[in-house]
Design a protein around this nucleic acid. Structure first.
Length: 567
RNA sequence: CGGGGCGUAGCGCAGCCUGGUAGCGCAUCUGGUUUGGGACCAGAGGGUCAGGUGUUCGAAUCACCUCGCCCCGACCA
């Protein structure tokens, strides 16, 4: 490609509305342009990178025997009603009516459609296992799209769905996909970490997320300093000592206008961990739909809401309103677990807790010397793990936190979708059976951003060779016949040798060309100038690396062997 | 949806408080001089000042409404 006609509009200044480095560089280097909130054009260079990532994913997926297909973006409401997600998915699902007033939506994910396809074609266990995948544009009407390609509303995703005759077969494929994802992210040159994950609105029994470690990541990961344990904080568990304090007799104490845990602890001269805080939540969905529940934790812990949602098998929970509080005889600021007329959940760390301090459900009073054994409550894991908590999986490590960008997730779904959507087959005994399912996603466009977050310097992007829009750029210095002719010949020879090359033949000064080549992150720069030609050489520079002077006659061969090395 | 900020030329910004009909840098175009790290000189083009309503002799500027964008939170495979 000749640069002078190539649509790669670079910017000298960072656009004011770009916050994270990947967003800034993608805009500045001319890879993407915003169309509307969370929706982008991929310019030719951006598309080249996207295609390279897709190619690697395809290669690795195909290796495992998965088959590529393509499903529609538009989906009928009926399928979503059948799976039960039409009502559950929320406003992230963009719904609309077509001209015949038929309820439809844009696909945020494709479990429904794939099940509908497979149920019509699946007959025998002999067809299983089967893994079908696509690389396709998804639409999710995100509450807050941000950070460019990191969290868009429209984005490119690889989604795979596997079908099995039994759970063992699913587990096998789950492991295959797990390893395949590790291969893919390794080939993409990423520092990443697989972590245990909550199954979220997709559901299922088991899930791992793959996180690219980066400061700008939106997720918080908890990991052990000693063993392999790592989990999203939504899911992470850690050791906690049991709270037993002096079992003094229980009595009420006055705590005038003192409500916050910190203040109560100071006022009573006790550690925060001797308090039990009681949080009241309004539940949506599940057995406790519409009710208020109480969740108790040690004073120094924070509630992980996702865990509460899971414990209640609810769709969501919201902090209770003042009217909710009155309904169950709770007193704002002095809520305690005693005498509440609602479902009560206590964090595991409070099992057998004694000598605690709780709200008295009376204005300006707390109770000291409180034991939880007088409560009718369920004990579940509700707390968010903290740095320095002990690891549950080994006795030596402790928990640390890291930020991550979620670029992939694998789910063992079981029969969550195959059952309501009737994905049936005839098993080896001739009996009708329900298929077992797994699903596996990779955020392809998000990967572009994730790679840049890890691969950049003060001059711009530093693409791994496998992802760069071009492998090589020829920078022609000056505009004499001699440099132009030599550059042109080199350009054509490289093209003939199958190298992806961008020839910068613009009538720009050298500095401008160097800056642009660095900004867009092309791995190899070949500098053709008068000075070098006098000596019969060109200069090959590694982006953010070393320089070599090569005889002009050997440039193509040298270039090819350098490209070979890095593959 | 709650809190905060912003909207003036392709990009980055000034002007607004104190109303008088729009400006700077970069980019673009023309001519010239330059040419191994974002050149210089001269000239030119490009803006319904997000949109609407109101106040006023007069609105980018004041008031109200609407829309859009960004950040924090809530939310989220």
């Amino acid at each position: 490609m000749r640069y002078s006609k190539f649509l790669a509009p670079s910017l000298r200044d960072n656009p004011a509305d770009a916050e994270v480095v990947s967003h800034q560089l993608l805009l500045r280097a001319g890879f993407i342009r915003r169309v509307t909130s969370g929706v982008y054009d991929y310019l030719p260079m951006g598309l080249r990178v996207l295609r390279k990532i897709e190619a690697i994913i395809r290669e690795e997926m195909n290796r495992t025997g998965a088959q590529e297909l393509l499903m529609p973006m538009l989906q009928p409401a009926e399928l979503w009603q059948q799976s039960g997600r039409w009502d559950k998915y929320g406003s992230e699902l963009l719904r609309f009516k077509d001209r015949h007033a038929h309820e439809s939506c844009l696909g945020p994910t494709h479990e429904e459609v794939i099940c509908d396809l497979v149920k019509r074609e699946l007959r025998s266990y002999k067809q299983l296992p089967m893994n079908l995948y696509q690389i396709q544009t998804k639409f999710r009407d995100e509450v807050r799209p941000r950070f460019g390609l990191m969290r868009g509303r429209e984005f490119v995703m690889k989604d795979a769905y596997s079908f099995h005759a039994d759970e063992d077969s699913l587990q096998e494929e789950y492991q295959t996909m797990f390893k395949t994802y590790q291969r893919i992210f390794t080939r993409l040159g990423l520092k990443f970490r697989p972590v245990e994950a909550d199954t979220g609105s997709i559901g299922g029994s088991q899930s791992h997320e793959f996180h690219v470690l980066a400061e700008s990541g939106e997720d918080l990961i908890a990991y052990c300093t000693h063993c392999d344990y790592a989990a999203n904080v939504e899911k992470a568990v850690a050791k906690r000592d049991i709270s037993v304090f002096d079992d003094a007799p229980s009595h009420h104490v006055d705590t005038p206008n003192i409500t916050a845990v910190e203040d109560v602890a100071t006022f009573l001269a006790i550690p925060e961990e001797q308090l039990i805080k009681t949080l009241l939540y309004h539940v949506v969905g599940g057995e406790y739909d519409g009710q208020v529940v109480a969740a108790c934790l040690r004073g120094d812990d924070a509630l992980q809401e996702i865990k509460l949602v899971r414990a209640l098998a609810a769709d969501e929970v919201m902090l209770a309103s003042d009217t909710d509080l009155q309904a169950i005889h709770a007193v704002k600021g002095f809520v305690g677990p005693q005498d509440l007329t609602c479902k009560l959940l206590l964090d595991e760390s409070l099992r057998d807790a004694k000598g605690m301090v709780v709200g008295a459900n009376r204005v300006d009073q707390h109770i000291t010397g409180f034991s939880v054994d007088c409560l009718d409550a369920d004990f579940v894991d509700l707390r968010e793990v903290r740095v320095n908590d002990g690891c549950c999986h080994c006795d030596e490590g402790h928990i640390e936190h890291a930020r991550g960008i979620e670029v992939g997730q694998v789910f063992a779904l079981g029969q969550q979708y195959t059952k309501p959507l009737d994905v049936l087959f005839q098993d080896a005994n001739g009996k009708r059976a329900i298929a077992t399912m797994g699903c596996y996603g990779i955020g392809v466009s998000r990967l572009i951003a994730a790679v840049i977050e890890q691969c950049h310097d003060e001059h711009g992007i530093v693409w791994p060779l496998a992802l760069s829009p071009f492998q090589v750029t020829i920078i022609t210095m000056g505009k004499s016949e001699r440099v132009l002719e030599n550059s042109k010949k080199l350009y054509q020879d490289l093209l003939n040798a199958g190298v992806e090359v961008l020839w910068d033949e613009r009538k720009e000064r050298p500095g401008v060309k160097f800056k642009d080549a660095e900004l867009m992150g092309i791995p190899y720069h070949i500098v053709v100038g008068e000075r070098g030609l006098d000596a019969g050489i060109v200069e090959i520079r590694r982006r953010a690396g070393e320089k070599h002077e090569i005889a002009i006659t050997e440039t193509v061969d040298s270039m090819l062997s350098m490209l070979e090395e890095k593959l």
